[in-house]
Write a protein that binds this DNA or RNA. Structure first.
Lengths: 331, 331
DNA sequence: TTGAAAGCGCTACCAG
DNA sequence: CTGGTAGCGCTTTCAA
């Protein structure tokens, strides 16, 4: 069941078997067919480790995400999977909940480590040093979530998306808008939240509306954390009349907090998020939609393009406001 | 940057470097420390392909799931990831939406293919032939979702879970209960749905309540499919007063359909699912809770145990009914 | 178009 | 406790 067995059975050399199996040129049509037939009969599959060692290519891509269990990441990973599988690439998944995991991931999958041919990072930012290493080694990295000039990337216009959401709130007459921010320390995704936060400020500025810094709270991505933090925000006597959350999942936490406090949505509080999560329709959440799974597919495509030698591309996926029943004019 | 460079720099043989790096015995403390220090200075990482080829072990496990984007699967995968990462195993993820993907997955990750040391299958059943091959080759497979006698498995008592949900409905006085079933053809998960369906029947029998076969509809896992199918069910003049869905995600589809038709929950329709999905609290869905991520962690543990030579274990994770506001006594 | 042979970088066995 | 060395199973020149 090694390449030699196939070679013997087909009456050719191992070199020819190797070429035939991989569909390389310089093999007579007839020879190739015979080799392939014999290989199938013998149920031969090349040993990936041996092939990798000899060829120096792994046909594997490592995908790093802050949390594989979060809605957004699982959708992107699903997209990457379908895109990569078609091309015969393996997908090595790693959750990177903190800096330690991230460092280890980068070490293990560094250019010199020869574990994979490329890396896809979803919403995880590199420090300048980390990026510099990869760039200097000509390593292939694809970024999903935000634009990375040095590498192919697929993202949305985070600034615009947030601005759109907040402008919607402002145009409904809201002037005291709460902001649910992600904590930057420890979390891997410290690029996207600040961008959306900036969009929040931009929208206020455009509307000539001052922002009250006291209306900003920080909360991790878990529903419970957001729920607790939001409750504190909404319990205040001068509570906001509307809230903008970094994601729909966070917005769900806000809705839970509102319910805890007996606040009606949208009568007492308007809420808007970003994503268009699967359950947003059911709960009536107004949001800024983005096609998430598609971004994963695109990442895989950009990667394969680059592997083929094409030049670096950046694609920006469109977003759009979807107004549902969680937002209403200020009473 | 090869093992020889480290050996030279540390003044020892490659064999010693190999042992030291892997923490094997028979290396003097002092020698080991020196080798490790040198290795770090030289930023040496063993080439995985070479190690695999030489050792015949990949330290990789292939994980197959019907759909990496579905809530349940992403949670389990997340659990597997955290369990495996700790042990230094790589996680190869594959989505298996249909039989074709599944067959290819099994081929690529078959014992003879030497791509991974083990397989974790989440809610994907093997045909007797497929299982026989793996068993005869002494291959390591861990099943998540349902019990597989030949391999370690982690699951819930699907029969009991469904019975509990439906008994809840029956005890509320409901006698016409709809059933949202998963289509078995094509879908990979054709073990769990029938078990839950059986639980549905068992509960009826226990209560001495006949089941109306017309109240069963089939729908894939996408929200839209369930929504459409449920609408047809709920539009009937003799519509059910309650519905049991295979999962919370399906239940969400039912809730959407109810809303489409102007039916109030729970006044006009009670709904119960299985999972305790992240959003079930927010939408007030009554459900049978199961700890999903933990099942992934357990799968990884069972796998590592078996790899260490322990014997096959089956763990059954407990479930529990959580009554929320989607169920009420029959009017 | 085909074949022979030299590695790829490590592990594991056997000696010492 | 340490070192020498024969592979692991393939890919890839280089010659034929």
């Amino acid at each position: 069941m090694g390449i030699e067995d196939v070679a013997a059975a087909a009456g050719v050399s191992v070199a020819t078997v190797s070429r035939a199996i991989r569909g390389l040129p310089n093999v007579a049509q007839e020879t190739s067919e015979r080799v392939l037939r014999v290989a199938k009969e013998l149920r031969y599959t090349p040993d990936p480790a041996a092939a990798r060692l000899a060829a120096g290519k792994t046909r594997t891509v490592a995908v790093g995400v802050p949390d594989p269990r979060a809605w957004y990441f699982s959708k992107v990973v699903g997209g990457v999977d379908s895109g990569l599988t078609l091309a015969g690439y393996d997908l090595l998944l790693s959750g990177l909940p903190d800096q330690e995991h991230k460092s280890r991931f980068l070490d293990l999958n560094a250019p010199g480590a020869r574990r994979c041919d490329a890396i896809i990072l979803i919403d995880v930012a590199l420090s300048p040093e980390e990026a510099a290493v990869l760039v200097s080694e000509q390593y292939l990295l694809v970024s999903v979530g935000f634009r990375y000039d040095d590498f192919p990337s697929v993202s949305i216009d985070n600034l615009a998306a947030a601005r759109q959401a907040v402008t919607h709130l402002l145009s409904l007459g809201h002037r005291r808008i709460g902001l649910i921010m992600m904590p930057l320390s420890g979390a891997m995704n410290f690029v996207v939240p600040p961008l959306r936060r900036q969009g929040f400020f931009d929208a206020h500025e455009e509307a000539g509306c001052p922002v009250d810094p006291d209306l900003e709270v920080e909360a991790g991505s878990s529903v419970d954390e957001v729920r607790t933090a939001s409750r504190r925000l909404l319990e205040r006597p001068d509570r906001p009349t509307a809230v903008f959350a970094m994601s729909d999942e966070q917005a769900f936490g806000v809705m839970l907090a509102a319910r805890d406090l007996g606040l009606r949505i949208p009568e007492d509080l308007s809420v808007v998020g970003v994503d268009d999560h699967d359950q947003s329709d059911l709960v009536g959440l107004t949001t800024v939609r983005q096609e998430v799974a598609r971004q994963g597919v695109l990442a895989a495509e950009l990667l394969l393009e680059k592997l083929r030698g094409d030049r670096t591309r950046h694609v920006e996926v469109p977003t759009g406001l979807i107004v549902r029943s969680s937002t209403a004019p200020l009473a």
